[in-house]
Design a protein around this nucleic acid. Structure first.
Lengths: 340, 340
DNA sequence: TTGAAAGCGCTAACAG
DNA sequence: CTGTTAGCGCTTTCAA
C-alpha cells in the first residue's frame, strides 16, 4: 500500500517555525523552560499544520503512556463483552485510556504460535500495563505489569483475578440436589480451561458428598458456545433414562439447552430443571436459573488492580477471587411456553 | 513508574546468537534469504530469551502493520457492542488484527480538545487504517485511510457507512399510522447527532404526509439511554391526552418506555403501542416492535470497506448506506404481563 | 532559553 | 546468504 502524502512530523513544525526539533518537542511536552513567545508561535504552527504526535515514536522514548491494554482472544461473545463492560467502567473512572486488542477469533490465533507473543508484545510496547483474559501461557517475560482474568493456571506468577468456579459450581449443584434431583446432567467446557475443570470438580464433589453415584453418561462436554449447548442438551435429553436436571456450566450452553428443550417439546421446569453459570444478560430474559459469575466485576477488579500496580509500583503478586453467587430469577415468561 | 529490567531487544538476540541484528530481523519477518541453520539457531535463541518484537519500533519503519484501529467514545453500551460484533466478524475473516481504542466514557473526552487529535493519532501511528464511530470532527488530516460509521456530517469527505435513519423512521411511522394511530409520541436523540435529526425528520414528514397535525407536546428528547427513555416515556404517558403510540428513536429508550409503562400499569399494546429503533438483542426478549438498524452490519461493512481500501488503494470515497428494516416481532410474553 | 547530537528498537537498502 | 549503514519520529542529555 503506497502512501502518497507523508505524515507531517515534528521536523516540519520545527522548520516552519524556525526553531529546532527539540524546542518543538519541549513545547509538545509542556516543559517549563520555553520562552512564552516561542511556545505560542510553535503552538500556532502546530495548529496550522494540523500536526499530531506519532505515538509509536514517542512511546519508544518515554515511559508513561496513560494507556492500558486489554488482550482478548475474541471480542464478540457475551463473556468477553461483560468483561469489557467492567474494564470500561474502571477506565472511565481513571486517567487511563484503553486499548483493546483482539485477533477477532480464537481459532485464528491457534495457527501461529508466535501470535501469543506478538499480541502481548503490542500491548507491552505502547501501554503501561496489560490485562489478559484467559491466557494460556504461564510465562510472559514482560517488563510491564500484567493482570490476568481467569487464567488457565490456577497459580500464575502474576497478579490475577479468579472466579470462584468450584464454589459456584458446588452451590449450583447443592441447589439442584436440594430440589430433590438425583440424576443431574452436566455440560462442561473445554478441558484445557481451568475454569471448566473446576466447575466439573464442583459437580462431582457435590454428588459425592450427597452420596449420589456418578453416572459418566450424564457428563458431556462442550466449549461454552450455544451450539455445543444444543448438542449436549440433545444428547442428555434423548437418553433413555433422561436426567431430571441439567447443569450447563455456562450460560451460553444453557441457552442452547433451552433451545433444544423447546424443539423437543420439553418443559423447564417440569420435564427437567436447568441451571446455567456465568450470568449474561440474555439469560435473564429467558428466565434461566443461573450462577452469577460477576463477569464484569472481574474486569473492573482487574483494571483497578492493574492501575494500582502501575501507579504504586508494589510487588502486588496477589490473587483476587470474585465470588460466585447463585441467583434464582423468576422467568420473564413461563418456562417452555411456546413462541408463536 | 520505574522499570527495573529493560526489555530484551533484537540486539540481545543478535549478540547471543552471534549474528547481526539484520539477520535476526530477517528471521523475524520470515524473509526467505536466510540459511536454514542460521534461522533455526536464531529462532532457538529467541525462544530462550523470550524475545518479542517491539511493535512501536517496528511500525515506525515498515508500512503494513496488519492492524486496524477502531475508535469508539464508549465501549459498554449496546450500540457500541453491536458495532464491535460486526467489526469483529470482518476482522476474524481477514488477515488483520484489531485494536479498539476508547477513553471509556464519552464525557471524559469532552474535556480536552486535543483528545480527539490524540486518539486519531494513536490509531494512525500504529495501524493501517481506522474506523471511527460517530465522529464529531469533519476533518482528520491523516495519511491513512479512514472509514466512519454514522458520522455527524451527512457528507463527510471520507468513506463512511450510514444508516438510513430517515427512511427507517418513516417506515416506523407509516407502520403506526397504518395501525390507525393519530397521536404518536416521539422520543428523540441529542440534536448534535445527525442520526437523531434524521429520525425526527422522518417522524415529522410521515405525519405531515398523512395529514396529521404535529403536536410539539408529543416530541420529547433524550440521549439514546434507557434513563432518558424512562423520563421521556413518563412525560408522554402522563399527558392529559395521552398518545396512543410512542415511537422511541432507539431501542435503549424504548426499553425505558417499556419500564415506565410497567410502573404506570399500562399495557403495550392496549393502552398504547410502542416502536423502537436500532434493534439490540435485549429488545428482542422484551418483544418490542422495532426498526432493525443492522447495527452490526454497519460495523461489518465499514471494516470490509476499509480493508478493501487498504489493500487496493482506490480512491474509494464512497458512502455506503445500510438499510433499515421494520421488524415486527411477536412478543416473547404477552405485552404488559407482570413479572412477579 | 535554545540547538546539536545521540540514541530508542527496528527495518531496509546496499554491499559483499 | 549475511553484515554494514542509514534512518523512522521522537525525547533527552549536554553545551552553548
Amino acid at each position: 500500500m503506497e502512501q502518497s502524502k507523508r505524515s507531517i512530523t515534528i521536523r516540519d513544525v520545527a522548520k516552519k517555525s524556525g526553531v529546532s526539533v527539540s524546542t518543538v518537542s519541549r513545547v509538545l511536552n509542556g516543559k517549563v523552560d520555553v520562552a512564552k513567545t516561542t511556545k505560542n508561535h510553535v503552538l500556532k504552527i502546530i495548529d496550522e499544520l494540523g500536526y499530531s504526535t506519532n505515538l509509536a515514536a514517542r512511546s519508544m522514548r518515554s515511559q508513561k503512556k496513560n494507556l492500558i491494554g486489554l488482550i482478548m482472544p475474541d471480542i464478540a461473545y457475551p463473556y468477553a463483552i461483560e468483561i469489557m463492560k467492567g474494564v470500561n467502567q474502571a477506565i472511565a473512572e481513571s486517567e487511563f485510556d484503553l486499548l483493546v486488542y483482539t485477533s477477532g477469533d480464537v481459532r485464528k490465533r491457534g495457527h501461529v504460535t508466535s501470535e501469543q507473543k506478538y499480541i502481548t508484545l503490542l500491548a507491552k510496547s505502547i501501554s503501561d500495563g496489560v490485562i489478559v483474559v484467559a491466557p494460556v501461557a504461564s510465562e510472559y517475560n514482560i517488563d510491564k505489569p500484567i493482570v490476568s482474568i481467569d487464567p488457565v493456571m490456577s497459580n500464575p506468577t502474576y497478579p490475577s483475578v479468579h472466579a470462584t468456579n468450584y464454589e459456584g459450581s458446588t452451590e449450583a449443584m447443592e441447589y439442584l440436589i436440594g430440589l430433590g434431583h438425583q440424576r443431574i446432567g452436566f455440560i462442561g467446557g473445554r478441558v484445557e480451561l481451568e475454569s471448566a475443570n473446576q466447575r466439573l470438580a464442583g459437580y462431582r464433589n457435590a454428588l459425592e458428598k450427597a452420596g449420589i453415584p456418578i453416572d459418566e453418561q450424564l457428563i458431556v462436554s462442550g466449549d461454552y458456545t450455544t451450539k455445543t449447548g444444543i448438542e449436549g442438551g440433545q444428547r442428555l435429553l434423548l437418553l433413555e433414562d433422561r436426567p431430571s436436571a441439567i447443569f450447563a456450566s455456562n450460560d451460553q450452553m444453557a441457552m442452547g439447552v433451552y433451545q433444544i428443550a423447546e424443539k423437543l417439546d420439553l418443559q423447564i421446569p417440569g420435564d427437567f430443571s436447568l441451571v446455567g453459570f456465568d450470568n449474561i444478560p440474555e439469560s435473564k430474559y429467558l428466565g434461566l436459573t443461573t450462577v452469577d459469575q460477576f463477569i464484569s466485576e472481574m474486569g473492573y477488579a482487574a483494571t483497578q488492580m492493574l492501575i494500582r500496580i502501575i501507579n504504586e509500583v508494589p510487588e502486588e503478586n496477589q490473587t483476587l477471587k470474585i465470588r460466585t453467587q447463585l441467583v434464582v430469577r423468576n422467568s420473564c415468561r413461563p418456562y417452555g411456553e411456546k413462541k408463536n
